[in-house]
């Protein structure tokens, strides 16, 4: 049964648009898949390799601006942004890695946070290239959601395949070894700097795809949206924390929950504007009661309900 689980999920996702969900529900599904891609990407570096990044908005925004600038400045299809984002995000990851990967623990966290903010401020001020705070508005390719849905689903599959392949290979073992003890990993012959760089780069490229997709799908970006600390970098971490750090399905489960929750809370009158406060409270609750996330602590949750029933 467990072996067929991914296939069943895929089949359900493929036929989902045929059910005739309304535009709003399709929008939520698309956002969920997009956030699942981000979560899986972040999880590769933060979950498996143990390098907790607070600056992934840098990659997301770079991806988004690749699409946006191509369409706005060069008048070519924003879809080429996906291609452009790869070399660009590899370059960003490598130069960022040069600075942050020599740092450990809280210093790494703070350095990534700072770099994420540097990207936002850069995008706000280099007006000639990015339009600054005016943002970039492009014409969307389709009005319908279905096409976007299949494209984001493709991205989801790609991220899934990449993470699955990596975690089951030598790289996966090395990533976890680095997370658990860098000195031990190093003395067991693992080139920790190299493998951390690989984790960062793969994570960056996947995140960049999600960013490019955001541009073509939403049709509008500005630095405070796509380079946002709270709405991108931290939300990415929350997606993984809620779902389960270093678990396979955690980011996906977390993405669905966070997107739905965000929509629900925002629709509540008055309280809605304070949704970030509520997210903060949720995060604290999760850390205390389900430190391994919903997927990681699933056995614990099941026991809780069984006890409740008996």
């Amino acid at each position: 049964m467990k072996r067929y689980f991914p296939i069943i999920v895929l089949a359900v996702l493929c036929v989902l648009p045929l059910v005739g969900l309304n535009t709003y529900l399709m929008h939520i599904v698309i956002l969920s898949v997009m956030w699942a891609v981000c979560g899986m990407a972040w999880n590769l570096l933060g979950g498996y390799c143990g390098q907790v990044s607070f600056g992934h908005a840098a990659f997301f925004g770079t991806g988004a601006y690749c699409s946006g600038i191509l369409a706005m400045k060069f008048k070519i299809s924003a879809w080429y942004g996906f291609l452009l984002s790869v070399p660009l995000n590899v370059a960003v990851a490598l130069s960022m890695g040069l600075i942050v990967l020599r740092l450990r623990g809280p210093y790494f966290v703070l350095a990534t946070l700072a770099i994420g903010e540097v990207f936002r401020i850069f995008a706000e001020n280099v007006v000639d290239l990015t339009n600054g705070n005016l943002g970039i508005m492009i014409e969307r390719t389709w009005v319908e959601k279905t096409q976007f849905y299949y494209i984001v689903l493709g991205l989801g599959l790609l991220a899934y395949a990449v993470v699955k392949f990596i975690t089951e290979s030598r790289w996966g073992y090395y990533f976890v070894a680095i997370r658990e003890d860098q000195d031990a990993a190093e003395s067991l012959g693992i080139n920790t700097t190299l493998y951390k760089t690989i984790a960062l780069t793969v994570s960056a490229v996947l995140t960049g795809f999600a960013g490019s997709f955001y541009m073509v799908y939403m049709g509008y970006i500005d630095p405070q949206i796509v380079f946002s600390l709270g709405e991108i970098s931290i939300l990415m971490i929350m997606v993984v924390m809620v779902g389960g750090v270093a678990t396979f399905w955690g980011p996906t489960v977390g993405a669905v929950i966070m997107v739905i929750l965000a929509e629900l809370i925002r629709s509540i009158p008055r309280v809605g504007v304070a949704y970030q406060t509520l997210f903060g409270i949720l995060l604290i609750v999760i850390i205390i009661y389900l430190p391994n996330g919903l997927v990681g602590d699933f056995p614990k949750i099941r026991r809780m309900f069984q006890r409740g029933a008996a």
Partner: peptide, 15 residues
């Protein structure tokens, strides 16, 4: 310095 959250076998495989 065992890789704490890995099984004993996985610890050795990583090496």
């Amino acid at each position: 310095k065992p890789l704490q959250r890995m099984s004993v076998l996985d610890n050795v495989i990583a090496s």
